[in-house]
Every structure is written in C-alpha cells, then in structure tokens.
Design a protein around this nucleic acid. Structure first.
Lengths: 344, 344
DNA sequence: TTTGGCACTCGTGCGTGCAGAGTGCCAGGG
DNA sequence: CCCTGGCACTCTGCACGCACGAGTGCCAAA
C-alpha cells in the first residue's frame, strides 16, 4: 500500500484527474498531447506519457489497443471519486428551481413522482426513488370501515403519508359498536408507534373483547399484521429511461441488459439497499453486484423526514458520468425531499 | 373505390398476406422467389412479381431500393389487419396461465401491475395499462378521519378498489359528532353513485347543518369535489420497455423517440383515449397522432368490471408486429382483468 | 528528472471489385 | 387473356488493400 501511495505523487494524480475529466467530456480515449493542451499541467507530453505508463501499471487507466489514448478503469474512477473530486454544489437558481418544483406536490405519490422526474432531468440520466419504507415509519392512523355485513376495509396511514388498504373477510357479521371499539383501542395503542413494534403492542387485544367477537378481532388483526410485515411491498419509481440512449456507445453491446435490470424492482431495491444510510454511496461498474449493470455506476443516498432516513434515491448512468455534478444533484434533491416530507 | 376492389383479386390479397407474414417473421424484405417457396401459392415467381408490381402501384407494399424485396406499407398492414387476418385465440393452457397469474392479486395496484407485466410477457412488447378511471366508477364508501382538532383526512373508495386520500385543513375545530353526522349523510347519498354525479347530490348538504358548522362542511365537500373532478389523476402503468431493444433495426434511427414518448403519461393517455370503448383498436404507424410513435403500432382495447369499460389497456410495438397474436393476447387479458375486477 | 526526437503500431476511412439477390420486361405457350 | 421461363440490369453487402494519422515507447541529451 505504501508503495502505491509513494508512486502516485501529486502530478500523477493531476494527470488522472485530467484524464477522467476529459474522457467524461469527449467520450474518446485521451492522449498525452491533447491533455497538456487542454489543462495547463506545466510539463511536456513526454512527461505525461511517463506518468500515464505508471498509472496504467497501477491499473487506474487502460488503453483499448496499442497506440490509442487512455481510458479510466473502474479503479481509476474510484480513486477520482474518493480523492480527486469534490461534490459540486448546486447553483442557487438551481436550488430555487428544485424547491419550487417539489413544493407543488399534493400527496405522497406526487412527491415521489416529481422527485424522480426532477432528478432525471437534472442529471440527464436514469433516476430511481424508493417510496418511504413502511418499516421505518410510524402509524398515524388506522381506520376500519364496514363495507358489508361481513366485509371490513382496513386502511393504514403512516406518518409519511403512505396509505395501505386491505379487505378483510370476517367470519361473521360485524357489529358497528364492536368495530368502533376495536378502532379506538387499536389507535390508542398503535398511533405514533413504529410499524414493526405494533404487533407486539396489540397481541393481547382479543382478550379485551367478548368471546363471540374474538374471531372477528383476530381476523382483522391478522390482516393488519400482514400489511405491516409486507416489507417486499417496497415500491420504486423510475424515470429518464430515454436518457440511456444518449449513451448508446458506452455500453458494450446494447442497452438491453440495462433496461432489463431496470425493470426488475428486486434488482433496483437491492441496488439501493447497498447504500449506507446517511452517506452518499457511489458504486462504480463491476462494484455493482448485478451483472447487467456492470458498465453503469449508481449514485445513491438516503433521504428522510427529520433526521433519519426512511428511504433511498439515486441515479444510474454510464460509468463515464459526471460524478461531481451527479453527486451534487442527488444530494440536493435528497435534502429537499426530506424537508418536504418533514413539513407535510 | 370500385377500381381498387376490382384490382385486388383473391390471389393478390393472398400475396399481400404472405408478404406480411414473411416479413414479420424474417425482418427482411421478401422477394418473389422466397414467397412461392414458403407458401404454396401454385403460381410461378414471375406471376407473383406482376402481382407485387400491382400491389406496389396501389401503395400496399414498397421496396426500399430497386432490386430489393418488398416491405408492407402502413396501408398494407391496415388492409391485412382489417381483411386478411383473424385474431388468434389463446390456447387453453395460455388462458389458464393468464387466469392463474391474475388470480393471485391482492389489491388494485397489484392487479394493474400483474396485468401489465403479463401483457408484456405474452406479447414480448411494451404493455400499457390504465388504472380504472375515477370518472366512470362509482362510490363505494367515503370515510372521514379526524387526525387533529382541525385536520381531517378524507378517503374515497371506489367500486374498482381505488383509494384516493386528501388532507383537509378545516377553518376550526371539528366535533366528532358533526363528523359522524357528515360521514353518514355523505355516504347515504353518494354510495353507489357515479363519481361525476356526486357533487350535484351533495350540493344542498351544508344547509342541513347548524350555522357554525357550515364552513367546515363546505371545506370538506370542496376537497371531496376536487378529488372527484381530478381527472388528470388518471394513472398509467408500463412494462416491457426492454423488449424495444429487440427491434432496434425496426426504428429509423434509434429507439430514443419511442422511449421518450413512453415516458410522457400524457401521450400514453391520449393514445389509449383514441380507443373506441368496447372494440379493439389498432393504430398503425403514421395513424398515431404522436410523431415519436410514427413507426410503431398500438393495439388497445377497453376493459371493465361487468359490462362496461372503465379503462383501457394495450400494447405498443413496431409496425412490423404479429398482429393476430398480439390482438389475441390483448383481448384475452382485457377479458380476464374485467372478470377479476367484477369479482372483487 | 524532464524533454525533444524518432521509429513503430494499429485502428479508421475510402475506393475497388465481386458475388448474390431481386427486379422488370419480353416473347412464347396454354 | 393470363401465366411462365429467360435474360439483362441494378443495387447492396462484404472483403480486400492501401494510405493516413494519432498515439505510443524508448533513448539520448539537457
């Protein structure tokens, strides 16, 4: 390790930074001459060539064939992101625009939709937003509605504004008084609690009812628990798929595997799942577990109402992407969505 | 018109049918020799050539350049769909599979999601399903929940299982008895009614309350009416975008304009809107109003619970698609979704 | 340690030539 | 009158060869 650090003196790092920046801009392998022209490195092409040879030796860059320019490797991008780049903050007009665009949302669906579209537009890449997960949110209200003598609709409302509904087929006719009683007891104990904690709090509830009503109560509770536990109901919204076509030649063969990956909610969820909660995560190329995304990078971060993150959002683009800009946009959007959610 | 009909005798129509079928299969311009080999037309290539010349004269087929095979034009496909093809019914194992796959759905979201995925998989193209529209459905139940002294949550449940919720900020504290009264009065009048009719039925409602409560009642009703009127909340679900890449060479330049069109819900809604309610509609190539979809065809049909259609679904693919098969799949899926919705 | 020079490598673009597929037309036959 | 076989023609796609240019690695000198 010490070896690597010693080898990479400041100028070599500057060369790597310049290569990444140029390649991101031009999409073409960058040669030594062009490099010294576009950046004032203060040395000659020959010197740069030596540095490039060293960088290639270390695996940070790579040349597609003899006598072509150099291209950053995944490892090169990694170093660039970790050490050489700073997240580019949004300009203040951009921030105002984000704020304004998100402020118009009326309900949770709308917030998520606006967020994902905004993110796709800002980064001109594919954006992914996960709905605030049920697991981490708390109960705002649980409503029971009698639709028919033996049919009850259960509505679960969370603090993030998400609404889940379930039909319950009861074993027998349900009296309105029993239902009202059950409703108020459930809410008294569950309101404000985290979703995973609720089942424990309601366990003893059937005992408080008369023998005849217990089957009904149990059925309703079972459905409620089911709804609470249904973690895989975690939904995701996607936008900006069309942006992929702009990068046609960035993908080995076609964009097909990428599109296929994007259609699999499971893949996307796992992708976002790898984000460490608060900090921004960048997965570059083969660092992504899923094979179809081997030539893409994923920039993701958690967002939430208040101080803790309830879900994640991110951007998927070609390995050759503008990392500082993308990271800036992702961070800014996550921040504002958090604020919006906290307000509502 | 009489002229056209006279010119297109049975054999010419058979030739056109054969051309469409071959071209759909091979993706390559089809020549006279290959035609007589693959279909037993009982005549020589030279004869077929004459017929092809006539068909080209009439605008049904077209050759990309001199001495290449022929390709059907939009007009050719149109004739094929209208006169030459029969909708291919699903096989009974296929029908069972559809039935089984859709039966597993738990709520409306799930029904729509399963439907769109199924359709994409069956046709191997892009599938679109519109959520049952609020406009045509009826009220099953309206629920009011007091969340805070001056904050009420309004939940609207339709017969199609769709749930809309709205927050209402009331001008003052809302008594529980008033709320209960309002709830039962609203439901008594609105339940079972078509959504657009509801405002008319509730117009006189504030008069039934005491002077002090009227502002609250009016506010709640205003929000309800707003939710009812919000037609543009019509949502759409999409699947199978990755299938587009299979047809890369079917699109003039790239699939980009198609992907862009698919991201615009407005475009999709208008596309489906052109479907005449019950009957299946096929829009071929330039028949589509939207420019980006000029080289695609749209097969769509209404579906609904019971006898009347509440929303639409369809498939989008290249002009060169298997029309009989696609139409069969679309019809079958629409039928089963209707049944599922009617049952729930 | 940097620099300028030089020979070398390899991909790209372009023009040529050839083979194959498909057509249109024409004259002959049922 | 319609169908058929034959023939000349046209156009695309592909392989080949060639020259060009960009970019490199190495070496000797500053």
């Amino acid at each position: 390790m010490a070896g690597e650090v010693r080898q990479l003196d400041d100028r070599k790092l500057a060369v790597l930074r310049a290569i990444v920046q140029d390649y991101v801009g031009t999409e073409e392998p960058v040669g030594s001459k062009a490099l010294v022209e576009r950046h004032n490195l203060g040395v000659s092409p020959a010197t740069v060539r030596n540095d490039m040879a060293a960088l290639e030796e270390e695996g940070y860059i790579h040349q597609p064939h003899t006598s072509a320019g150099r291209i950053p490797t995944d490892k090169g991008y990694r170093l660039f992101v970790d050490k050489l780049a700073e997240i580019k903050p949004m300009s203040s007009p951009e921030r105002r625009a984000i704020r304004h665009f998100l402020d118009g949302a009326v309900d949770l669906d709308d917030v998520v939709m606006r967020t994902v579209r905004l993110l796709a537009q800002l980064t001109r890449q594919v954006a992914v937003v996960q709905y605030p997960s049920l697991t981490r949110s708390t109960v705002r209200h649980i409503e029971l509605v009698a639709l028919a003598p033996a049919k009850v609709m259960l509505v679960l409302i969370t603090n993030t504004g998400r609404v889940e509904q379930r039909m319950v087929d009861c074993p027998g006719t349900v009296g309105e008084t029993v239902l009202a009683d059950l409703r108020s007891r459930i809410n008294a104990r569950a309101a404000g609690q985290r979703l995973p904690d609720v089942p424990g709090l309601l366990e003893e509830l059937p005992a408080a009812f008369e023998q005849a009503d217990r089957p009904t109560v149990s059925t309703v509770l079972a459905t409620l628990f089911e709804a609470l536990a249904e973690q895989n109901e975690e939904r995701i919204m996607l936008a900006g798929t069309a942006n992929l076509t702009r990068f046609g030649h960035d993908f080995p063969l076609t964009i097909q595997p990428v599109l296929e990956a994007l259609e699999e909610q499971v893949v996307l969820l796992r992708l976002l799942g790898e984000t460490t909660d608060a900090a921004m995560t960048v997965r570059i190329g083969r660092e992504n577990a899923y094979e179809g995304l081997n030539s893409t990078s994923v920039v993701s971060v958690g967002y939430g109402s208040g101080d803790e993150s309830v879900a994640k959002l991110g951007v998927i683009g070609p390995t050759r992407m503008d990392y500082p800009g993308t990271m800036g946009a992702v961070r800014a959007v996550a921040r504002y969505v958090g604020q919006i959610l906290a307000e509502s």
